[in-house]
């Protein structure tokens, strides 16, 4: 019962802030709505007993990636909103219509698909919920060690690439 209320409230926040991100004219406001969206998603992860992912979401996504977006928005400090002089004959209603159709189709498929059973009975006391960090750490370092190392190489390459791309003079 409490879980249901929490889920619906958090979903309202997540979808509301997402719509605001996509529709605001002011880019800084859009970035701030994105932060709030990520914080709501982190709260949803706590509801799903994925505590480690929740703090990683806040630490890396909301506290790292979006700070990067905010910096770039401030460095690209334009005098007029960048979309003021877009082509006036853009037909955005086609996009809305098609997306609505796809959403309807997917919702019907999911809703009428196999009714998935609810989560485990003692969800708060399972091993994965209580020893979340230990279990994920074990998985990361034993079964999925190679993807872990590849991800670290990817981050190194991305770091070098970002520095080279953003330098003023090579």
């Amino acid at each position: 019962m409490n879980q249901a209320i929490a889920f619906y409230v958090l979903s309202a926040f997540i979808l509301g802030f997402a719509v605001l991100v996509v529709s605001t004219r002011n880019t800084v406001h859009a970035v701030l709505y994105l932060v709030l969206n990520f914080l709501a998603v982190a709260a949803l992860y706590v509801l799903l007993t994925a505590q480690f992912l929740a703090v990683i979401q806040v630490l890396v996504y909301a506290g790292g990636i979006v700070v990067l977006y905010l910096f770039v928005v401030m460095l690209v400090n334009l005098k007029r909103p960048p979309e003021d002089h877009s082509a006036p004959q853009r037909h955005s209603w086609i996009g809305f219509g098609l997306s609505g159709l796809v959403l309807l189709e997917l919702a019907v498929i999911i809703g009428y698909g196999s009714i998935a059973p609810p989560g485990p009975a003692n969800a708060q006391n399972t091993d994965l919920a209580m020893y979340n960090v230990e279990k994920i750490g074990m998985l990361l370092y034993t079964d999925y060690l190679i993807p872990f190392e590849v991800a670290s190489m990817l981050l190194l390459v991305a770091m070098v690439g970002a520095i080279i791309l953003a330098k003023r003079e090579l």
Partner: peptide, 25 residues
């Protein structure tokens, strides 16, 4: 007593950076 207590502290500290950026902006 959250089971990720220390990481929680680090993550909310990284949210505090926003106030400074937005205060200046």
């Amino acid at each position: 007593d959250v089971n990720v207590g220390l990481l929680y502290i680090v993550s909310v500290a990284s949210i505090g950076v926003y106030g400074i950026i937005l205060g200046g902006w």
